[in-house]
Design a protein around this nucleic acid. Sequence first.
DNA 1: GTACTTTTACTCGGATACCGTCTGTCCGAGTAATTATGG
DNA 2: CCATAATTACTCGGACAGACGGTATCCGAGTAAAAGTAC
Lengths: 164, 164
Amino acid sequence: MQMKTGVEQAVYALVLLSLLPDKAALPGEAIGSRLGASPTYMQKLLRRLGNAGLVQSSAGAKGGFRLKRAPGDIAVYDVYLAVEGRQSMFAPRGTLQDMLDRPGQGCGCRLSALMDEAEASWRSILGRETIETLAEAMRSGGYEAELTDLRQWVRNASRKDEIA
Amino acid sequence: MQMKTGVEQAVYALVLLSLLPDKAALPGEAIGSRLGASPTYMQKLLRRLGNAGLVQSSAGAKGGFRLKRAPGDIAVYDVYLAVEGRQSMFAPRGTLQDMLDRPGQGCGCRLSALMDEAEASWRSILGRETIETLAEAMRSGGYEAELTDLRQWVRNASRKDEIA
DNA sequence: GTACTTTTACTCGGATACCGTCTGTCCGAGTAATTATGG
DNA sequence: CCATAATTACTCGGACAGACGGTATCCGAGTAAAAGTAC
């Protein structure tokens, strides 16, 4: 019952992308190495975010990834969904039917309903915070200096040729 | 992010034990085979439930397992805790610190707080239902006949020698 | 200077290897009830 | 009939094999920008 580590990495990758100037893009490798994650695996995560419509990618030189929606429009829940998939946590195995010796599989069991309810509540809370609110929390949480440094880094990483 | 299948099996094992007459005990193997689960693995689960104080075990001939608390006093949450352990779903890896280039590990990140909040809500809903309410739902859910059959089976399984 | 080709810097999807965890099995040791044995 | 020993039926904890999924790496193919080349 552990959440994939990719969810955390994906969330912060999106936070990073939210600092990107308009029309610019960030290569997956740069994102991965900045986050201390495996660059190749980060690529894979970004592709999933792309398939989920959270991120836009452009191939070719000077290509990379950028946000497809506004940061305030991307909830943590969306990221979770993109990385972990749509399946529910609890997968009933028909134990109740076996116990009652009922071949019918219509698991009208209360347990399943309870689990689904719990998960729905869990998900709804993940929907409360967005990439924007997370970034805002960093800004007002004593990380202003680091944020401006980070913004600077993002500029450099997104247009290396114009540094010199 | 899949829940262990053992949780479902453990829940129904406890429901089964709640049908047991006073002072009687049910061997782990009988429980496992009745639930269509691996008997040896069910033993392992039952031992965990024992360590968690949900179940009482007696060794020796005519030994086995019985509930240690009243069925109304065992929440689904307790079962989950016994089987899955106490660790939280979200284990932060310090991605935020890496991103901000802050060696300090004090992850005051909003994400962690959000995840904890979501999990707390999830857990609290699992605390709503107990072994007793689940059994009651079965009783009033159209499974009366199966339940009396099951109760009969439990009697037999708990005192094999007096059958003949 | 323009058209064309090559190089470079990326993404994309798949194939694959690694590794930890969950599932499942097995074993020796301990314990309690039952049965057998000896007097 | 009683005390003691042997058998039986369990649990306990650990060790271990297998399967599966997440993590991570690599590859060929495709794409777009930039750089080089020819005229």
